[in-house]
Computed example of a mutant assay.
Amino acid sequence: MDIPSSTRAAVLTAHGSALELIDLPLPVRPEPGAALVRILCTTLCGTDIEIWSGKMSFPGMLPMVLGHEMVGEIVAVGDDARDALGRDLTVGDRIGWSESTCGACHGCAVLREPVACSHRGYGFLQRSDAPPYATAGLSEYAYVVPHAAKLLLPESVPDTWAAMAGCAAKTVLRAFSRVGGVRPGSRVVVQGSGALGLFATAVAHLSGAGKVITVGAPSTRLALAREFGADATVDIAEGSEATVAQVRELTGGHGADLVLDFAGAPSVGREAVEMAAQRGRVVIVGSTGPGSEALALGTVMGKELSIVGSLNGDIADYHDAIEFFTSFPERMPWDRLFGPRVGLAEASARITAMSRHEEIKAVIDPRLT
Rank of each mutant, 00 (worst) to 15 (best):
G54C: 01
G54H: 02
K55R: 13
M56C: 11
M56W: 13
F58H: 01
F58K: 09
P59E: 06
P59M: 09
P59S: 08
G60F: 03
M61L: 14
M61S: 06
L62C: 10
L62T: 02
L62N: 04
M64W: 07
V65D: 04
L66C: 00
L66A: 07
G67M: 07
H68K: 00
H68F: 11
H68I: 07
E69T: 06
E73R: 03
E73A: 11
I74L: 12
A76M: 02
V77Y: 03
V77Q: 05
G78V: 06
D79P: 01
D79R: 13
D80E: 11
A81K: 08
L85D: 15
L85C: 14
G86Y: 08
G86S: 08
D88M: 11
L89Y: 01
L89F: 06
T90R: 15
G96A: 05
W97K: 00
S98F: 00
S98R: 05
S98Q: 12
S100Y: 06
S100P: 08
T101F: 01
C102V: 13
G103D: 08
A104I: 14
C105S: 11
C105D: 02
G107D: 02
V110K: 11
L111V: 14
R112K: 15
R112Q: 15
E113Y: 14
E113T: 15
P114H: 11
G121V: 13
F124Y: 11
L125K: 10
Q126G: 03
R127A: 09
D129N: 03
